[in-house]
Amino acid sequence: MGVITDNLPGVLEPLPGGSVLVTAVDQLINWSRSNSLWPLTFGTSCCAIEMMMATGAARHDMARFGAEVARPSPRQADLLVIAGTIVKRMAPRLRTLYEQMAEPRYVMATGSCAICGGPFMYHSYTTIRGADEIIPVDVYVPGCPPRPEAFFYGLLTLQKMIREGESIRHPGERRRPVLAALPEGMTLDDIRKEMQDLLSHDANVNMTEAAAEGAHYSAELKDF
């Protein structure tokens, strides 16, 4: 981050009443950050259309929340809205985009695809099951596709998170006020394992059987 924000705590803290000052500066910085998000124009599939409706259509109009300056270059953007499915071929590019973005950067995963693979969770051999396997995600917005209203709720949540989240004392460390609790007796690893079992089970196709079955259709297909 910037030279000023890096050095500011060191200068301010020793002063009398310094820590109060740091908190005040934090608030000011977070407030301005939360109200001037610059999203990257990035959309891979269906959800991108609803994002367009959310940003462009006069009924919804993202400009009300100070986030309408969509930038096509990642270097000028600080909000990455993952709108759409991420497949294996796109994953490294997504990572590159994320790394090129200016600090501090925020990520919203909109749509079931970006959360867990959505409709392509089972039986698809290419989709990444959730964008958070590649980059850290701050806010998830469920839906297939999420309505513009849902997207705005996510955006407001992100703004709330930014306002309460970071301090220049520990740059890069974020407090997340909105956390969903897991049911008792269950850990994240349990869920991961269960999902992996399911997925490997899904992918089992008996190739010999399938090929034998296919032989007679290929003959039929020839004169089609």
């Binding site: 891979t44 599939s45 497949v87 796109m90 409709p119 392509f120 089972y122 039986h123 698809s124 989709t127």
Partner: peptide
């Protein structure tokens, strides 16, 4: 190939009704 999701292959795993919602995408 940057958004190849394997929809055609996925169609083979469900019945005919289940394929309809995939072509939406």
């Amino acid at each position: 190939g940057y958004i190849h999701r394997g929809i055609e292959k996925m169609g083979e795993h469900g019945n005919y009704r289940q394929f309809v919602h995939l072509v939406d995408r």
